[in-house]
Design a protein around this nucleic acid. Structure first.
Lengths: 247, 247
DNA sequence: CGATTGGTTGAAAGTCGTCAACGGAGGTGG
DNA sequence: CCACCTCCGTTGACGACTTTCAACCAATCG
């Protein structure tokens, strides 16, 4: 289900006021709004970008959760990382070439769309925005680097713990924290596919974390009693991130 | 062992003539050379950039092999990807902040160094170069995405086969192909750390590939008899890459 | 109400890791 | 020139973390 909607003025963007995002100058804001060609809505579970598709747009995730993934021809799927509000998508592949990965919505999703000419325009006329885009790209690579470490060298228990802490913190940064936890719109299959595990084993590990009192997770709501304890379980310590740019 | 040497003129760069690299305009070439502050030599096995170190430079790998890695505090190490001539390094972390990963030389390595002001200067004055930098960054993310798929969803046999094919092709692109194969400056420990496997198991898989007649690998020389067969073993098919920019 | 999706649990099998030991090659110092 | 040491590759035995196969249940849905 794809809709195009009238563009929300960037000046009224609900994300910008969040403490995690870097302030922009009015000039930048105007240029960004100028490049925006519309918004797009996708239903939960919808394919936002198909693996192998030729992309002509770049998007910013305005609302909702999504994930990037790759599949092997026999169906094995690996989730590369999760996308939350503020994340850019479509940049990883080059425009006008087949996308090396797919993107799927986990919740109903709202995207800001930019035309394919936006990028070169930013680069030639708005160097500061171009630098921000590059920063976002490098930032995502850092996340994927972490995934490699997790999947390659952490045990199943460590992987699950690290992922939950990671998502918890990110959701919090995106302003998605609620009383006693966050909404975690993932099935156990998503967790398994993100961690290189089977669903069954993921389930068992989750049980252990629940029974150990580390997490409460039911009905898509996650709360973590003791974040430090969970970090220890997952051997997971992230570096503090500076305020991030928002396209 | 760190030496700074007089800078090789970019116009005389041995890499640029290779068919894999995108041509540059004389103006671009001049600007790049202008930003170059020197060269750096590292011995095989040397740490080029330490994990957690604050970097103040960006480098282009001019000659030799290296790899990026992360470690868990208990010593488990994961190699994120390998660096070959033409690759950029130091961009993934933000300048003037702790590097989230280390970089180590596999062979004697020759680097072109750029000062920390080079990036902002490119962005503000040479949009085309800035775009190239972003392309290189996105390209590396695609490589890491592939690593995630490999480590998360391929079997040990598939992982080894896919990695060998990948490195074989990259070495060929970098002009490192020789009669009957390439020089592969890795120990089995490197392969294991890149694939999330133990050294022992890596060894056994390598034996199977040798005995199956798929590869010849001895004394750091790798040759692959039937590339297509190896691709099938590794379920590994890459998309053709366009000519890449070289900073 | 049958079908589908997501979660859960048990049992069995297997891939892969750990522990240990050995051999060859290269490097160093006496 | 030869001990001695370290690095790297190799192999066997054993153990275990995970996967696969199966079945069952609850909730949702058209």
């Amino acid at each position: 289900m794809i809709h195009m909607e009238p563009a929300l003025p960037c000046a009224a963007c609900p994300l910008r006021p969040l403490p995690d995002f870097k302030p922009v100058t009015p000039t930048e804001l105007a240029s960004i709004y100028d490049a925006k060609v519309g918004q797009r809505l996708c239903a939960a579970g919808a394919t936002i970008l198909a693996e192998g598709q030729v992309a002509t747009r770049v998007y910013t995730l305005l609302k909702g959760w999504a994930f990037r993934f790759k599949t092997l021809e026999d169906g094995r799927r690996q989730i590369l990382n999760f996308l939350l509000p503020g994340d850019l998508l479509g940049l990883q592949g080059e425009l006008h070439a087949a996308l090396p990965h797919g993107v799927e919505a986990l919740t109903p999703v709202n995207l800001c769309a930019f035309g394919s000419d936006a990028l070169p325009r930013f680069f030639s006329r708005h160097p500061s925005i171009a630098l921000d885009i590059t920063w976002l790209s490098a930032h995502e690579e850092r996340l994927v680097d972490d995934v490699v470490l997790t999947v390659g060298r952490r045990t199943a228990m460590e992987r699950v713990a690290a992922l939950l802490v990671h998502l918890y913190k990110r959701a919090a940064s995106a302003g998605l924290i609620e009383t006693s936890g966050i909404q975690l719109p993932l099935t156990q299959m998503h967790i398994a596919d993100a961690l290189g595990l089977s669903v069954v084993h993921t389930n068992r590990v989750l049980q252990r974390l629940r029974k150990g009192g580390f997490i409460r997770l039911e009905d898509q709501r996650l709360s973590i009693g003791d974040l430090q304890a969970m970090r220890r379980v997952g051997r997971y310590w992230e570096e503090p991130a500076p305020r991030r740019p928002l396209l």
